[in-house]
């Protein structure tokens, strides 16, 4: 007679907050909510713009309020973390890139992609300043 009686241990229900990589993962995913929130702010601006000058003025007043500034500072940190971790995970989500018969290291892909994102953002900020002048 077999004496097998395999024991299945329960999964730790708090694995997503375990210190280290799991918590970093949870934070990365949570900051996605921050991105969506900022999308809502931008969308609200767009709607105010389409409704005419009065609505737009109200939106600008909201942007100048202390609550909005605090929100934007928090969202800036959240977005920065999301951008950083987004490009860290990027090499894991795409086929391997082979150049001259060698695999391009993950770190190189992350660095180049981050550089392009930072350059695009800087160009956009510069463009906005030039147009606003």
């Amino acid at each position: 007679m077999s004496e097998r009686r395999p024991y299945r241990r329960p999964v730790n229900p708090k694995w997503w907050w375990a210190p280290g990589a799991y918590r970093a993962y949870t934070l990365r995913e949570l900051t996605g909510v921050g991105i969506a929130l900022y999308g809502v702010v931008l969308f609200a601006g767009l709607i105010s713009l389409s409704r005419g000058p009065d609505h737009w003025e109200g939106f600008v007043q909201f942007l100048r309020s202390p609550a909005s500034i605090v929100l934007h500072v928090i969202l800036l940190v959240v977005v920065a973390y999301h951008v950083k971790t987004w490009f860290e995970i990027l090499p894991k989500t795409q086929p391997k890139i082979i150049v001259n018969g060698k695999q391009v290291p993950a770190q190189t892909i992350t660095s180049y992609a981050t550089l392009v994102a930072v350059a695009c953002s800087a160009a956009l900020v510069l463009f906005t300043f030039l147009v606003a002048r």
Binding site: A21, Y22, Y25, I89, P91, K92, T93, Q94, P95, K96, A106
Partner: peptide
Amino acid sequence: AVGVCSDVCPKHVDPANAVNQNKT
């Protein structure tokens, strides 16, 4: 895409890459 599978791999196989490129 938790990605810890690749972190713990003793042979640097990067299984997370195998899973995620096949989502595409």
